[in-house]
Amino acid sequence: MPDPTAPPLVAASVLSSFDPLCGPIGLLQLLPDASLLACGAEGWGDEIASGFFITVTLSLATLPVGLTLGFFLALAKISAAPSLRLAANIYTTIFRGLPELLTIFLIFYGLQIGLQQLAVALGIDATFEINAFFAGLIALALVFSAFASEVLASAFKAIPAGQYEGAAALGLRSRTVMRLIILPQLIRIALPGLGNLWMNLLKDTALISVIGLSDTLRQTGIAARITKEPFFFFGIACLLYLALAMLSSLVTSHLENRYKRAEQR
């Protein structure tokens, strides 16, 4: 009889074998068992690795949501309809002006209280606990999309009108124009700005630890409190974020070079 829990287990074991910290070829496996960062029950390596995994997952999960939202907001901002531009600008003003921490609290408590009142209104007797990961994803996606819409809107404006006119003269449909003519140029122009936003997103995920998500910062904080070695563990947290920043700058510069090929001759 097939085990219903098998696929997630397989997925988890596949993922854990790629774990750069505590996997089979993980960095921390090199340390002796007595070390503070060892991966077994003694050390804090595996706890920190799980937090690191959550930080990366949260950023990667927020990115597509924020980019999609930001793309549609940017379309609204370059629209000919003033009302659509106004609606998009109100959104940007709010979510760019609020501190990220406040946005997180607003979403976390707001959703919880809102759902509770909805349940009371519908006569359902239940208490809601909003998942910190989910609330964090929404809050970060709102902030990310507000900034991304500015980057994408200015990239849209940087594409000359002749590109649209030429495409129209060729008889292409508007959807095809967007996909084949505008988007490739848009990505090339917007990539440096989006790369910066991605770095900010990575750093902002650390704020979600405040509402109880067990990310890198929270796990290192717990380790710091129990072992009474705060400088060591928060230093490790900083190094982990630094490693992520370095990795992403490698990836973004690679992507930028790739998209720049069209310009080289």
């Binding site: 770095m199 928060f234 900083c238």
Partner: peptide
Amino acid sequence: YFFRGTPLIAQLFLIYYGFGS
């Protein structure tokens, strides 16, 4: 690179809690 690449909240914790070491 350090101050731009790490979250401000981690830097604050490193100084506020970490200097206790």
